[in-house]
Design a protein around this nucleic acid. Structure first.
Lengths: 209, 209
DNA sequence: CGATTATAGATAGTTATAGTATCCGTTATG
DNA sequence: CATAACGGATACTATAACTATCTATAATCG
């Protein structure tokens, strides 16, 4: 398969494929001459994953490279998990978080074990932003969110558990982390629409201007 | 309050404030002369919301303007809801979705009422991306996700219900939509970490390279 | 066989976004 | 009254993700 066929098969433009080759997201084709190479089905599949991560998951090309490298590597699964979480999260450092911010997050997370990382810091940042915006969420709302997160987190781990082999598990971790966020956000919108229309007896998302 | 004080009070640089004024995200100050104006606490608060939407919610300046306009307008609440959902979601059009894609989403959403929009289309896109990536999620996982989404969606509507007045409700819709996504993603990470470490008896997010 | 087309790889250009810097004439302030 | 700050316009910078062009070589087809 030459690059033109790879482009046709994947739906990714030729210059963009060259970009991914340059950046190391896509492994080079098998060289047949100094300036000829052939690509395989694996390249088509890889391009699909790259597009999924960047288009659906919203990852930057650099972030996508990080998690793809993690899949390919022989890193332990928990490292892959951490890398995927970090790549799929915005700035993850906790340097601008006060003790009060962290305490609020830890209170929310009570009952869960956690460590420093995207989870704890992300919760702290989101809660601080809510407080700053004057949206003090009440206990019932918080309890619902924590309950939902527990259901999902356990389901995610179960799904990974059921995969056979490190590569399949690693791919599930990466794809699941990135796409799970997108799916969850979309499901949330649908559920909001459902309960909103159920309660107000009017369509919640009429065509907006 | 002059612009220098507004900058100090909000932590947003003076040129950036001018940018937001130019783009119409921030209303102009009260003019005292042709080239003098004073700003109020409302401007500080507004800047906080702008930064929340752009920094935490990842919205573009243009998208942030859209939802801020929706808060200010007298649009019905369900329109505001739709606008916030659209602004916080990537491309929401369903033009590239096949009937099979939509059928898969509708199957997932069984039991919920929904319409065309970010929810249905987003679910369809995420599920298609998962299928493309070879991640076929089993029924247990799907059931968990739907259950979690129902819990959250209902909690969101409850929270909005408890607010008094259209403005407060509208602000809750917008902030809640944008920050809820971020909070939920972070909670998911924390929960994954919890169940992962519980199950494997090892830390799930050791410091990654 | 030879003309045309395609290829790999390098380099340069494009577009969009978000923010920054510099002017300007005017106004506040010490 | 002198200096600093102001509002507003314009121009600049940085980054990211592509896209286009170029060159020499290789494949392809009549």
């Amino acid at each position: 398969m030459k690059i033109s066929q790879l482009s046709a098969a994947s739906g990714v433009s030729q210059p963009t494929i060259k970009l991914y080759l340059r950046e190391g997201l896509l492994p080079p084709g098998a060289k047949t001459h100094a300036n000829q190479a052939t690509y395989s089905e694996a390249h088509v599949r890889r391009l699909g994953i790259i597009r999924t991560l960047t288009q659906v998951g919203g990852l930057s090309v650099a972030s996508a490279k990080t998690v793809l490298d993690a899949i390919d590597s022989e890193l332990p699964l928990n490292w892959t998990f951490g890398l995927a979480q970090r790549a799929a999260s915005p700035d993850v450092d906790g340097t601008d978080l006060s003790d009060a911010d962290l305490a609020r997050a830890d209170d929310f997370l009570a009952g869960l074990t956690y460590h420093d990382g995207p989870g704890r810091f992300g919760v702290a940042k989101a809660l601080r932003a809510m407080a700053d915006a004057g949206l003090e969420a009440d206990g019932a709302w918080r309890e619902s969110y924590r309950k939902a997160a527990e259901i999902i987190g356990e389901a995610d781990i179960d799904l990974i558990d059921r995969r056979e082999g490190r590569l399949a598990k690693a791919e599930t971790v990466v794809i699941g982390t990135v796409l799970g966020d997108a799916l969850l956000a979309a499901l949330r919108r649908a559920a909001q629409e459902h309960f909103s229309s159920q309660r107000y007896l009017s369509r919640s998302t009429e065509t907006a201007p």
